[in-house]
Every structure is written in structure tokens, then in C-alpha cells.
Design a protein around this nucleic acid. Structure first.
Lengths: 257, 257
DNA sequence: CGGTTTTTTGAAGATTGTCAACGGGAGTGG
DNA sequence: CCACTCCCGTTGACAATCTTCAAAAAACCG
């Protein structure tokens, strides 16, 4: 089953949009401003693949070659982009935002990750793994492109540097998953939430974080419920471990728990 | 923070030891018999790297080249092979078994994964990620080898096929993590355990599984405690969802929960 | 066999999920 | 601008689940 979530390569040397945000639910994605710049660039070059970190370092010829294999698609909010057992391949978010979810047998939606511009998902489908339970759904109006497993696999074999770039991205995704695991293996929800918030705050000098998605989504991400998240946040606030700024911003007061 | 767990490439075309076991805590590793064969092979060729799936498809010359960069080490049970902030690089298990663990701030050991022959860990360290909390400890008397990040990185750049092989392995590892996440995000421990056991049983025609490690380790893997695992297993047995064969073998009666 | 570790079991208390109700904010349409 | 709806977050109460601590039983290892 399943697939992989991908994000910006964390240590790419010259990605225009900063990518050192630490593992959020989000694949770290670019600021609105960056997106604007990219959008304009697209219009000029007409190369969607140039947005994508793993392709950016390839030669222009290679990029043109890849562009020919790509299927573009514009999707609206809540459109189902991919269902289990659909055609296999890799999905790339040109711009916008999509959610990768899994439905449990009791019908609940479990958020796996949210992808932003330049993020991609489906590496594992390139290697023959099947998708039994993963849906990809547009979070907002977005442009996405799709490369079939077969085509992409051929690319990988023919373009060594692409393997390296994709490896880098996959290793990064791996880190994110590892990190999520480190939250989830804590038995206390309070510990999970605190660890999650602490990680969100690394690199922000004032310790202020913007909560990226709804409580409900964070809840499924952390293996609990929205109500428990709500209560836990209150508890953390009254323990002076975090401080509420407004509805979506918090300051993290003690990183180490 | 972290590293990556690696396993056999799942769909390698000609790995001598079958590798389609689905994600256990273990990296899928070879049977004792296979290990024996490998051991002998080593003695003859003196090439440790030939054991390792990601190196096996490379030319003999490449393998010799790699072998020169490798540091070998024999370790006893409970030896600490690597601590946080040690030299970075990739660790490969030639034969034996090692455990990758993380220590929480309250001093508890959290098992991340168990690696068997041919498995490797540390891809993320090759890309500059630091290791703040991961220990690698010998589970039994083992032979391991180590390649420094710098050396390995050079290899990757010089040997395109190696990137592809490592990508394959990393994507597979990614799947394992994804899978572990899918267990952990269930709120009920019973669901986590059942999903875990079900996955262990896929591919076994009789549904009989061998529990790979102690309850305690499975407990930390699934974000709970040994006592709860014990009780949960009993409950599942009395619900006729699993059946105890002996102390380390169970038959899974209903895969779908 | 003796010593050590792991598993099982019990009981108590804490944590968490569930169900239900309420309030506020965003968006819609009049 | 207001009424309305819908969704999300909050809060309360209760039941279920889980952790913890302790102790006994079983399995493991040399």
C-alpha cells in the first residue's frame, strides 16, 4: 500500500523558496510571494517541471523532455485527484495545496500530509507498490501534474542525476515520517502535542508558530481527537509551556519537555 | 534527530534471500540458512559490500572501490555502535542484528527498528541531517561496516546506479514508516496491534507469524506499554481474531479489522 | 540448575474517546 | 446590513481505555 510524502529537498543549494521549515504536517512550501514569482516564470517558460526542486537542477533539455511526459490538470477544492487503485505514477503539485489522506475501515479520514507548491507524492508507486487506501484531494484550487510510473521509471534510469535528486527528497521525506513517528510513539497526548509544537518552532527566533491546519487535522496527524487537542492546548497554556497569541498563532515557551 | 531505517530493496530482481516480507519492526532479513551462505561467501570474496542489496548490482570494480572505503567492526551484544553526535555516515549490517533506538527525555528506550543482514541505516546523515537522539546498539554478536558521509556522498555522485539502488531502498523504508504511522495514528491500541499483526501475516499462506522481538519492544514501536500489549493479545485471542501457537508464534485469523 | 529477564495478572487512578450542547466566525443570500 | 447556515473550536459529563505500580509466574540463558 501507500506512497510517500515529499517535500522540498531540505538542503538544496539554490532553491528560490526557503525550505528549512522543520517538518510540519505541510510539506514545507513556498510563501505566497514565491508562488507569484514562480507563476510568472511559468508563463514565460511554459515548463511546469522547473518549479519542482527535484527537476530544477537538470539541464533544460532534460526538463523539456520531462515536460512532454507530464499530464497537467487544474483541480478545484475538494476534487479527488487520485483514488486507490488508480493509475500509478507520481503526482506533483505545481501550485496550490492538496491533502493526502487515508480512510480507515470505519470511514474516518486520516490526514497523512499536506502538499504545497513543488511537493510531490508517489515515489513508492514508481517501484511497484500498490495503493490500497490513499486518496489525494485538492485543498484549494490547484494545478497539478502527473507522470505515469512507467514514464517516470524510464526517466530515472536514463537520468542519473534525477535519481540523486529524488533520493535527496525521499531521504528528507523519510525524516519527516521519522519525526511524526517520534511524536506518535509517546503514550501521552500532551507529550505528542508539545513535541509537535516544539518542532514547529525551531528556527523561529521569537518562538511564535502559525498552526498550519485545523485541530481536527492535527488530531488525526497525532493519533488523537480534536477535543483532546483542544483540551491539551489549554492545559499547556495554563502550565505556561505555550502562550496563545491568536486563534492560529502560539508562542512556544519551553522547547524541551 | 533521526536517520532512516533501511531494508532489503523490496523488488530487487535477484536477491538471494527473499525480501518480500512486509514491514516488520525488522528490516526484513534473511533466514539463518541464508546468513550462513552469505558468511561463507564473505570468507571467499572478502567483499562485505556484496552482501548488501544496494551494492549487489554494481560492477565488481565498483564494489572493490567501495570496499576500500569501508570500516569493518565486530560487535558484541549490547555494544553501542553509534551514539548521537558521533561521526556521520552510513552503517551497514553485514550479519547479525542491531537495534536502532531513541531515548526520550524521561530516559525510556524507544525502539525504532531492528536491522538484519544487508540492512543499513543513516541515509539522512549523508545529506547533512544531524543525529541528536538515535543510538545503534548490537542486539547480538554482529559484523557491521561503516562508511563516512563524505566518502559515501562522493560515491553517490560518481556512481549513478548507486543512487538509483539507494533510492529504491529508501522508498521502501519510506513505506515501512508510512505503515508504522498508519498503526500509530489509530487511537485504540487493539487496532494498532491487530493492524500490525495482520501486516506481519501477509504472504504467509497459513497466517502463522513469528513475533520478531519482545513485547516490550513491540510496545514502544506501537506507542504503548508491554502490559497493554500482553492484555491486548489475550483479548484478541479470546475474540478469536488471533490464535496462540507458542510463545512467539501466532496465527492471524481475520486479516481485515 | 540458578539467576535473570520477560510476560502475565491484579487493582487503582489517570488519561482519553465519545456524545452532546454551545458559541463564534466565515460565507451566503436576501 | 441582517438572518441563516455550516463548520470549527470549546466545554462538560461519563464511560472506556490505558498507564502505572506491584507481585507472581513463566521463559530464557548460560
Amino acid at each position: 500500500m501507500n506512497h510517500s510524502q515529499l517535500h522540498h529537498t531540505p538542503d538544496a543549494t539554490h532553491t528560490p523558496c526557503a525550505a528549512h521549515e522543520v517538518h510540519e504536517i505541510h510539506g514545507t512550501h513556498c510563501s505566497a510571494k514565491d508562488k507569484e514569482q514562480k507563476k510568472q516564470a511559468t508563463r514565460q517558460q511554459a515548463l511546469c517541471v522547473s518549479h519542482v526542486p527535484i527537476f530544477r537542477s537538470l539541464s533544460y533539455e532534460s526538463q523539456v523532455q520531462i515536460e512532454h511526459l507530464v499530464h497537467h490538470k487544474h483541480v478545484q477544492r475538494e476534487d479527488v485527484i487520485l483514488s486507490p487503485h488508480d493509475a500509478k505514477g507520481m503526482l506533483i503539485v505545481e501550485n496550490g495545496q492538496v491533502r493526502v489522506t487515508r480512510y480507515t475501515t470505519d470511514g474516518k479520514e486520516h490526514l497523512q500530509t499536506v502538499l504545497g507548491s513543488g511537493d510531490h507524492v508517489g515515489e513508492s508507486w514508481l517501484f511497484g507498490h500498490s495503493n490500497d487506501d490513499t486518496f489525494i484531494i485538492a485543498d484549494k484550487s490547484s494545478d497539478v501534474c502527473f507522470i505515469t510510473a512507467e514514464n517516470f521509471h524510464n526517466l530515472l534510469v536514463r537520468m542519473p542525476d534525477l535519481s540523486f535528486q529524488l533520493l535527496k527528497a525521499t531521504v528528507y521525506a523519510n525524516n519527516q515520517l521519522q519525526r511524526q513517528n517520534s511524536y506518535l510513539t509517546r503514550t501521552r497526548v500532551k507529550d505528542r502535542v508539545m513535541a509537535y509544537l516544539s518542532d514547529l518552532s525551531v528556527g523561529k527566533e521569537n518562538g511564535i508558530i502559525a498552526v498550519p491546519v485545523s485541530w481536527k487535522d492535527i488530531a488525526t496527524f497525532l493519533g488523537t481527537t480534536a477535543e483532546t487537542i483542544s483540551r491539551t492546548i489549554s492545559a499547556l497554556a495554563s502550565e505556561r509551556r505555550i502562550e496563545k497569541i491568536d486563534n492560529s498563532h502560539y508562542r512556544i515557551l519551553k522547547s524541551r519537555a
